[in-house]
């Protein structure tokens, strides 16, 4: 069963090139590794988190982020 209030981001690392726009825009949802590539922290569970997640998706210059029900 999925919970509609949880949105889980996923980063396609074959498309990602480490711009860092996601962890700048939504630092609660994305961290970065030692090379500057993103690491998903967890799902967005609040309105603010979900808005940040949508911004991260829209600002990614590689269109590498997708969202599923977490």
């Amino acid at each position: 069963m999925t919970d509609e209030t949880r949105q889980l981001p996923a980063v396609d690392l074959s498309a990602c090139n480490g711009h860092g726009r996601c962890y700048m825009t939504a630092p609660d949802l994305f961290d970065c590794d030692d090379d500057g590539f993103p690491v998903v922290v967890g799902p967005a569970t609040t309105d603010v988190g979900q808005r940040d997640l949508q911004r991260a998706v829209a600002n990614c210059p590689e269109q590498a982020i997708t969202v599923s029900a977490g």
Binding site: N17, R55, N59, C60, P61
Partner: peptide, 20 residues
């Protein structure tokens, strides 16, 4: 501005390594 997926640092494999 939102969103702002600009390409000032390029994109793809040659994304500016000094962007950070």
């Amino acid at each position: 501005r939102e969103p702002n997926p600009h390409l000032a640092f390029g994109a793809g494999n040659h994304r500016c390594v000094g962007s950070h």
